[in-house]
Computed example of a mutant assay.
Amino acid sequence: MIKHFFSVVTFGFFYLLSLLPFWLLYIMSDIIFVIIYYIFRYRRKVVDENLFYAFPEKTEKERASIRIKYYRYLTDLIVESLKLLTISEAEVKKRVYVPNAELITDYFAGGQSVLGILGHYGNWEMGALRFSQLFAERRVIVYKPLSNKFFDNIVIRMRSRFGATLVEMKSTMRKLISYKNERTITVLVGDQTPSKPEIKYFTNFLNQQTAVFLGVEKLAKLTNSVVVFCDVRRIRRGYYQCTFIPMFKNPKETNTYEITHAHVKYLEEVIKEKPEYWLWSHRRWKFKPEDMV
């Protein structure tokens, strides 16, 4: 009972904060940045290690510059994500420009479903909400449940606001098979870290051998869905552009690991161009090939 009460109060607090205008949320972001960067030094060791191994060719000063830009963006991402609890459809449309949505409608018209791959880059959550507005066909967002049930429920509520169907990662294959008579666009985050029992494949990513889920490739081949990369870039504070990048129109004709390698490499090039917008505080390299022996 007490736990439920505190959950309700906490959600109410977050909800009220999300009603604040963006300009005020960004003032909050500036304050949060000072607190987590200079006072609490939130995950500084993780970020420094990730940047060191990803960019050994850069100087310490260059990596420090990326680090501080990353934390400045991270706090913006926090308040922007909070805003998504109450943001209007019109506001999302204004803030996420999609220059080539017709690419997806053309695939639908040709009778194919679409598999869209995202990275933890830019505001992927706002990008996913924008996808929910674009098409009349079924929109599926694949997610990995959070261990904290309270925050998991908040994320589910946020992601499904504009009509998207949320599907747990472990149920994705079964669900997509059940939608085989529908045209769908399914969005997955392609740079999540598999748990040790789930690891089947390593590839080179940001200068390190990296465990990668093979789910995108398996789903694409099973459903013969067109594979596109959802390239979300920050234009300026609070505004983004998402471009659909065609990758594979006939996935069943690809070689083993070809799809996986392609989407991992594309994300890598995006990160190298503007590294501060990727999730560096995530423990992405917990496992190495030698750990699997």
Rank of each mutant, 00 (worst) to 15 (best):
M1P: 14
H4W: 15
H4I: 15
F6L: 15
T10R: 11
L17S: 07
L19K: 13
L20A: 10
P21N: 08
F22A: 13
F22M: 10
L24Y: 11
M28G: 09
D30L: 10
I32A: 12
F33P: 03
I36F: 06
K45A: 13
N50A: 13
K58C: 12
K58M: 15
K61N: 12
K61L: 08
R63F: 14
A64M: 14
I66S: 08
I68G: 05
D76Y: 05
D76I: 08
E80G: 00
K83N: 05
S88V: 02
A90L: 10
R95Q: 12
V98N: 01
I104H: 00
D106Y: 09
F108G: 00
Q112E: 11
Q112A: 02
S113Y: 05
L118M: 10
G122N: 04
L129H: 04
S132A: 08
L134Q: 03
A136M: 09
A136P: 13
E137V: 12
R138M: 05
R139V: 11
R139I: 13
Y143D: 07
P145C: 13
L146G: 09
N148C: 11
D152E: 15
I154W: 00
V155I: 07
M158N: 09
G163K: 11
L166Y: 08
V167R: 06
K170I: 15
K170F: 14
L176Y: 01
I177A: 09
Y179K: 02
R183F: 05
R183D: 09
V189C: 09
V189G: 06
D191A: 04
Q192C: 03
Q192I: 03
P197R: 11
F202L: 03
A220C: 04
K221M: 03
L222Q: 07
L222E: 15
S225M: 14
V226C: 01
V226I: 04
C230V: 03
D231V: 14
R233Q: 07
R233I: 04
R233C: 08
I235D: 07
R237P: 08
Y239G: 02
Y240M: 04
T243K: 09
F244T: 05
N255Y: 05
I259C: 01
I259F: 02
I259P: 01
V264Y: 01
K265P: 09
K274T: 11
K274D: 01
W280F: 11
W285Q: 08
W285A: 00
K286A: 11
K286V: 15
F287V: 12
E290A: 07
M292W: 06
